[in-house]
Simulated scan of single mutants.
Amino acid sequence: MKRLISLALTLNLYGAFPDWYYKVKGTTQQKQAFVEIMLPLIQAENKKLEHLRKHIIDIFNDPFYLINPKKVAFLAKIAKIYKIKNITDKKEFLKKINTVPASLALAQAAIESGWGKSRFVREANNIFGHWEYSDKGLAPKSKYDDIQINYSLKIFPSLEASIAAYMKNLNRNPAYKSFRDLREKYSEENKTFTGLAAANTMINYSQKKEEYVKLLKQMIKNNKWSKYDK
């Protein structure tokens, strides 16, 4: 265990799943190694979101922020990233800039990447199955006949970049508005927003729809990952 933790903490030096991970034998050991690698990276990205959220709050707490060019420029930059139309809309900023339950991120990472062993991960650091509408990414082995435009698997420079893109996707994509609405509700009620609760809003993440939601919840429960949301 200590060896796994040590290697997980130094993963930033590699930016990808290390070679030793693919040599792990046994289902239990594989799951343990997957969590030891992924959880610190997920938590680190959530920390960045917490820091950004606090900075946004601090700006809005300044009654004169609108006459401060640096603060206005910063809000404009973040608003563009998170698709926020009005830079004075504090509620919208806080609704979109928030953390993702670690258990949900772990479950989706495990499902979408085949526990980190899919070709998408090995060749593109693509953990969450992100596509891009171009031919610049990793070419899929087969394409859907009803999609006429070019698309490919997005290539990420590191696992951290893939996780950041995943969280940004949940925080700004219209398809996950229900996720953000529910998270805001939990926040207003001062309740912990868990992966099990969040899983109910992931119906648009996969073509499997309700079956995907069921699979996510089973993954979280079977592996007892809810403890990471506290």
Rank of each mutant, 00 (worst) to 15 (best):
R3E: 07
L13G: 09
G15S: 03
P18N: 00
D19Q: 07
W20S: 05
K23E: 04
T28H: 08
Q30C: 05
K31A: 11
F34G: 06
I37W: 06
I42W: 10
E45P: 02
K47L: 10
K47I: 10
K48A: 09
K48G: 07
E50W: 06
H51K: 11
L52A: 06
K54V: 10
I57L: 04
I57Q: 04
I59M: 05
I67F: 13
A76G: 06
A76E: 01
N86R: 08
I87C: 02
D89K: 06
F93N: 04
N98E: 02
T99C: 03
V100E: 00
V100G: 03
P101K: 09
S103E: 02
A107P: 03
G114Q: 00
N125K: 09
Y133S: 07
K136G: 04
D145K: 15
Q148W: 12
Q148Y: 12
N150E: 00
S152G: 09
L159A: 07
S162H: 06
S162M: 09
M167P: 04
R180M: 08
E184D: 05
K185S: 10
E188I: 15
E189P: 00
N190I: 12
F193Q: 02
M202N: 03
Q207W: 13
E211A: 15
V213T: 08
L215F: 05
K221Q: 07
N223G: 09
K224M: 02
K224S: 11
W225R: 03
K227T: 11
K230L: 14
